[in-house]
């Protein structure tokens, strides 16, 4: 469903702040894969998602979504295939607009915006039903401004918007990091359910190892803009924090040894 071939991205090239964020990244996601993505600060997790969504052009490499080469497509065109939820709850929704207006904007993802009325009666019923599944009491607040919602409610709404028209790929960029633990658990639970119900292909970046292990059928670890661990199947199911840390030590240890050799 998603293929990244040798993707490179350097920020602030030819300056003292030069940063090789992605270094020949290769990734192949099968349809229905739900991969969690972990890695330290600056490992390239968010950069990878931004590269896929086309926030900026990549320097080198290819990005294919469902077999189609989207490397050259601008962000708004790729949006047709992608559902996105951001770390900042403010980023996923339009604050001064109603809940139903936000959903209506999302329902038309990938379609031309016409001079038809922005929202229909049938849609409203559909939204009410979907909001009910969130169990946050939003189904009775269709005309409330999104700015009145809490962070957790906004993330849940963004999640709904991202999956309102079935995306080929769902990108979750630390979407629970800004929430309190209880709300984060709730939003994760909703994410799990929506992904399972719609059999979505998904990438979820997280800082929380436990979440990375608990969710999804695949775990990817990034370091210095490359994938250093890719665990799936039975191995993923039996993963614990301890043996994940051990695996990390092995991979990181080798890296360390390499660095030492370079220095000597």
């Amino acid at each position: 469903m998603l293929q990244l071939h040798n993707v490179h991205k350097t920020f602030n090239a030819n300056s003292v702040n030069e940063k090789h964020a992605l270094n020949g990244l290769n990734l192949h996601l099968n349809a229905g894969d739900f991969a969690t993505v972990i890695g330290g600060n600056g490992a390239g997790k968010s950069t990878m998602l931004n590269a896929i969504s086309g926030v900026w052009p990549i320097d080198q490499g290819q990005i294919l979504i469902d077999g189609e080469n989207v490397t050259k497509l601008p962000e708004y065109k790729r949006a047709t295939y992608l559902g996105r939820v951001f770390q900042d709850p403010m980023l996923g929704t339009a604050t001064n607009m109603e809940i139903q207006e936000n959903l209506a904007l999302a329902l038309r993802r990938g379609k031309r915006r016409t001079l038809r009325w922005r929202i229909t009666h049938q849609e409203r019923d559909q939204y009410r039903e979907l909001l009910k599944t969130l169990d946050l009491g939003l189904e009775n607040r269709l005309t409330s401004k999104v700015g009145l919602l809490s962070g957790g409610q906004r993330q849940a709404l963004t999640l709904l918007m991202a999956t309102l028209t079935r995306p080929k790929l769902l990108l979750l960029d630390e979407h629970t990091a800004a929430l309190d633990p209880k709300t984060a658990a709730k939003v994760l639970e909703i994410s799990d359910r929506i992904i399972a119900e719609n059999q979505l292909t998904a990438l979820m970046v997280t800082q929380n190892l436990r979440d990375a292990i608990k969710h999804g059928n695949r775990l990817i670890m990034l370091k210095d803009g490359q994938i250093i661990l890719d665990i799936s199947g039975e191995e993923k199911k039996n993963l614990t924090v301890e043996n994940l840390l051990a695996k990390f030590a092995v991979v990181a240890g080798e890296e360390l040894a390499n660095d030492r050799m370079l220095l000597s």
Partner: peptide, 16 residues
């Protein structure tokens, strides 16, 4: 109207 609110979100919904 949404563009005046949040350009990032509007692009993510496939609007130029």
């Amino acid at each position: 109207r949404a563009t005046g609110n949040n350009q990032q979100m509007v692009r993510a919904q496939g609007v130029n």
